[in-house]
Amino acid sequence: MKGNGFSLQREWQAFWLALGFLTRIPMLVKVDYSQRLMNQCSVYFPLVGLLLGALYAGLYSLLAMLWSPQVCVLLVVAFHLWITGAFHEDGMADSADGLGGGYTVARRLEIMKDSRIGTYGAAALVMVLLLKVVLQTEVSPVWLGLLLAPAISRLTPLCLMRWLPYVSDPDTSKSKPVAEGFSGQRLAVAAVGVAFIALAFQVTLAALISIALVVVVWGGMLRKNLGGYTGDALGASVVLSELVFLLLLAAS
């Protein structure tokens, strides 16, 4: 399976690499890791989100037989933080610390690389988690938000990767291999997949607004304050897109 054309085996490995990159789920197939494969795997981020959403919705349905919606959503969010390693939430906290506490680009990037959490990061993390729990319980039916938000929101970082330059130390970054060489063609494939999901569940407008709003507003902030994006900023974009999407679902 060599060459530059489509390879089913390579795409299968790219999917599992994306699953391993975004979650704690073990890769059950042998992956021939390469920089190119890492570049390609991001097209499957929304699909990984959909699989996570199916887990969340299924878990909620089981828990709902015993407890109230509030308790069930709290337990599902706790499961989400475990199964993903709080990957995107960590990016949200680091981004808030960097943008809130730094006065120069260099200082902001330095703060974002610090493993310690500061006041801005702690406040942002508490607020986004509280909002997520409250909004999930406001969506009717609850399982719909749990299922769709992870898939819809994971298209946002792919858009940012195409729009903005990468600004971080490639020797210490986990996201550089994903961002480097990400093609517009693969972005289009991911966008079509998300559009199909949104159409199937009749949430097209909410999906479009949540992605576009975060790309424009958050992306504009990143361009102004950092000159581009970092891995943490991409993680934050997922969290922000989820919240906007849930806000729109809860209001409809």
Rank of each mutant, 00 (worst) to 15 (best):
Gly98Asn: 00
Pro141Asn: 04
Phe201Gly: 09
Val128Cys: 06
Phe79Lys: 09
Gly102Val: 05
Val203Leu: 09
Arg116Cys: 14
Glu89Thr: 07
Gln35Ala: 13
Val77Pro: 05
Lys113Ser: 12
Ala188Ser: 14
Arg108His: 00
Leu146His: 00
Asn4Cys: 15
Asp169Asn: 11
Gly58Phe: 12
Ala206Tyr: 10
Glu242Gln: 00
Ala179Glu: 11
Ala188Gly: 13
Pro26Thr: 15
Val142Asp: 01
Tyr33Cys: 06
Ile83Glu: 03
Lys174Asn: 11
Ser252Gln: 14
Ile152Lys: 01
Pro150Trp: 03
Leu17Phe: 06
Val194Gly: 11
Ala200Thr: 15
Lys2Arg: 14
Cys72Glu: 06
Gly85Phe: 05
Ala198Val: 05
Leu199Val: 11
Leu52Ala: 09
Leu213Met: 10
Arg10Gly: 11
Ser68Gly: 05
Ile209Thr: 08
Arg10Glu: 14
His88Ala: 02
Ala251Asp: 07
Trp67Ile: 13
Ala54Val: 15
Arg36Glu: 15
Leu51Asp: 14
Phe21Met: 02
Val189Cys: 10
Arg24Ala: 04
Thr23Val: 08
Leu8Ser: 00
Gly100Tyr: 01
Val105Cys: 11
Lys2Ser: 15
Ala123Phe: 12
Val238Gly: 02
Phe21Ile: 06
Leu148Asp: 13
Asp232Glu: 03
Leu249Phe: 04
Pro170His: 08
Leu129His: 13
Met92His: 05
Ser252Met: 14
Met127His: 12
Ala124Asn: 07
Leu205Trp: 12
Pro46Arg: 05
Ala86Met: 10
Ser140Trp: 14
Leu240Phe: 14
Val48Trp: 03
Val134Met: 13
Ser7Gly: 03
Phe45Arg: 00
Gly184Ile: 06
Leu17Cys: 03
Tyr33Phe: 09
Ala151Ser: 10
Arg186Pro: 09
Ala250Gly: 10
Val139His: 05
Leu187Glu: 06
Lys2Gly: 15
Ala54Ile: 15
Lys176Thr: 08
